[in-house]
C-alpha cells in the first residue's frame, strides 16, 4: 500500500547558520511548515528574514560559509517512498535527480539564471537530457513545445537565440520553461517577478498560476510583495528574522492577521483603494541577524510589547489560534481584545 500524504514537503525544525567573521549568523532558526500538494504556498518576509535561505535548503543549495545545522525536510513524491532530503549524500544520484527533476527552481534575476554563452534551446535541451532519456532531436522538439506553452511567440525560431537577445519578460518565461520541462512535482519560485515591470509581472503571475493548475504542481513562492501573495498563493507563511511568525491560508492572513508583525506589514502597505492619509508604519528597522533581540525577536518594534512577557526567555513557538491558523506570539489573545477595543473606541 502506498501511503498517501496530503503534503508534498514537510519541513521540521530547520536550522541554517552562516559562519562569518562576525560570528554565527542564524539565518533560519527552527522553521516548521508543510507545502500541501497541488497548492501554492507563499513564504513572505522582508530582506534578511531567511525566506530564500529556507528555499535553498530544500534543494541543498546552501554553500559555505552556510551550513544546515539541523532539521528534516521530508519530500513525499507521488510515486515511491518519502525521504529526508537532508539525509541524501552530497553526490548521490537521488539528490541529482531531485534537483531540476522532481523539484525545480526559478530565480529572481532571469539574466543570471541563464548562461549567456549558450542558446536558449541548448539550455532547455540540457535540462531535458539530464533527467530524461531522449534523443537530441526529440529534446529539441520538446523544448520548442515548452517555449510555446509559456507563451513565447515563434517558439521554434527562438530556440537558437541567446538570452541577451530577449527582453526580461521573455527570459523569465524561458527560465520557467526550463524549470517545468521535467514535470516537477514542486516548483520553488524565488522572487520570480521582482525584477520585472508591473504589466509583465501580471503576465508572468497569470502564466505561473495557469501552469500550476494545468500540471497540478505544488509551488513554493518566495516573495516580499504582499500583493503578489494575495493574488497567487493559497497558503501563506510570514517570516521574520529567521522564524515563521504566522501561518494560515491566504484569506485569513490578509483579512484577519493575528501576529502584530503581519498586521503592521499589511497596514503599512499603501494601497490603490486608500486615501492620502498618513500610513501606519512599523517603528524602527529590521535588526541585523547578528544581533537578534532576546525573547520574541519582534518585541522592540511591536506596538503591543509588554515588558517581561515579550522580551525574555525563548522566542515564542507557533501556536494554533484557530483552525489552520498559527501565530508565534504570546500575547495573541490579549492583542485581539486590545485591537477590537481600540476599534470600538474609534467608532
Amino acid at each position: 500500500m502506498l501511503e498517501k500524504n496530503k503534503n508534498i514537503l514537510d519541513i521540521k525544525k530547520l536550522k541554517v547558520s552562516f559562519f562569518t567573521e562576525e560570528g554565527e549568523i542564524r539565518a533560519v532558526n527552527d522553521v516548521n511548515f508543510s507545502i500541501p500538494k497541488g497548492k501554492v504556498m507563499a513564504l513572505v518576509g522582508e530582506s534578511g528574514c531567511g525566506k530564500s535561505v529556507t528555499s535553498y535548503s530544500i534543494l541543498r543549495l546552501i554553500q559555505k560559509p552556510g551550513k544546515i545545522m539541523d532539521g528534516e525536510i521530508t519530500f513525499h513524491p507521488s510515486e515511491g517512498k518519502s525521504f529526508d532530503v537532508l539525509k541524501l549524500g552530497e553526490k548521490s544520484d537521488m539528490l541529482y535527480n531531485l534537483r531540476g527533476g522532481k523539484i525545480s527552481m526559478i530565480f529572481q534575476e532571469p539574466m543570471t539564471a541563464l548562461s549567456p554563452v549558450h542558446t536558449v534551446g541548448n539550455q532547455i535541451c540540457e535540462a531535458i537530457l539530464n533527467h530524461q532519456s531522449m534523443t537530441k532531436a526529440e529534446a529539441r522538439g520538446k523544448a520548442a513545445d515548452m517555449l510555446a506553452k509559456v507563451g513565447i511567440p515563434g517558439a521554434k525560431g527562438r530556440l537558437d537565440q541567446y538570452p541577451f537577445e530577449m527582453s526580461g519578460g521573455m527570459r523569465q518565461r524561458v527560465v520557467i520553461a526550463m524549470a517545468i520541462v521535467c514535470n516537477p512535482e514542486l516548483l520553488i519560485a524565488d522572487e520570480p517577478t521582482t525584477a520585472l515591470d508591473v504589466t509583465i509581472q501580471a503576465q508572468i503571475l497569470k502564466l505561473m498560476k495557469e501552469l500550476q493548475q494545468e500540471m497540478d504542481m505544488s509551488v513554493l513562492l518566495i516573495t516580499h510583495n504582499l500583493g503578489v501573495v494575495a493574488q497567487v498563493a493559497d497558503e501563506v507563511a510570514v517570516m521574520y528574522l529567521g522564524r515563521i511568525v504566522e501561518r494560515s491560508d491566504v484569506y485569513t492572513i490578509m483579512k484577519n492577521p493575528r501576529h502584530p508583525y503581519t498586521m503592521g506589514l499589511l497596514q503599512s502597505l499603501p494601497s490603490l483603494s486608500m486615501d492620502k492619509t498618513k500610513l501606519p508604519s512599523i517603528k524602527g528597522s529590521v535588526p541585523s541577524l547578528t544581533d537578534i533581540p532576546e525573547g520574541c525577536p519582534f518585541h522592540p518594534r511591536c506596538p503591543y510589547y509588554k515588558p517581561e512577557i515579550c522580551d525574555t526567555g525563548t522566542p515564542p513557538d507557533l501556536v494554533s489560534v484557530a483552525d489552520n491558523h498559527d501565530a508565534a506570539c504570546v500575547r495573541v489573545k490579549e492583542i485581539q481584545n486590545e485591537s477590537s477595543a481600540k476599534e470600538e473606541a474609534c467608532v
Binding site: 527582453s167 519578460g169 509583465i200 510583495n225 500583493g227 493574488q231 491566504v250 483603494s273
Partner: peptide, 26 residues
C-alpha cells in the same frame, strides 16, 4: 488602465484582471 489593473492587490477578493499582452516598448 492596463497599468492600474496590473497592480496586484493585497486583497485576495480583488483578483488581478490584466489583459495586456506583449512587451514593454523598446
Amino acid at each position: 488602465k492596463a497599468l492600474l489593473s496590473a497592480v496586484p492587490s493585497p486583497d485576495p477578493d480583488q483578483p488581478m484582471n490584466m489583459s495586456l499582452s506583449g512587451e514593454v516598448a523598446d
